[in-house]
């Protein structure tokens, strides 16, 4: 079976995550969709690693997971701080950097 199947699946999952980031208003759900996109790229890395027959892609996928964990920790702390001052976790309320 060809790696094209795995890469097509990873592209579809990435697009679902991107759709969630575009559509959803709650900051935590936006976070979940970012995790979905990171997972899709991990699947692409692992299937490239399988295609080329070396382990580098799997190690990069492992590193991506660790960076994603760090990102979630800092991001949730930021969401908590914003919630404490604004009483809302909607991304539409955080628009002060827009103008």
């Amino acid at each position: 079976m060809s790696p094209g199947h795995y890469l097509a699946l990873s592209a579809i999952l990435f697009t679902i995550g991107a759709l969630g980031v575009l559509v959803r208003r709650n900051a935590i759900v936006v976070f979940m969709c970012i995790e979905l996109m990171l997972n899709a790229t991990n699947l692409a890395f692992v299937s490239f690693s399988r295609m080329h027959g070396n382990l580098d892609g799997q190690i990069i996928a492992f590193f991506v997971m660790v960076v994603a964990a760090a990102e979630v920790v800092v991001g949730l702390a930021i969401i908590m701080t914003i919630f404490r001052t604004r009483r809302s976790s909607s991304v539409d309320d955080v628009n002060l950097l827009k103008y």
Binding site: P3, G4, L7, A11, M51
Partner: peptide
């Protein structure tokens, strides 16, 4: 936008790696 992006990505990936073998 998401459907267009998915179509583009899947087309590129299948054209690029569809006949590669694992």
């Amino acid at each position: 936008v998401a459907v267009a992006t998915a179509a583009l990505l899947v087309t590129v990936v299948v054209m690029g790696f569809g006949d590669a073998k694992m």
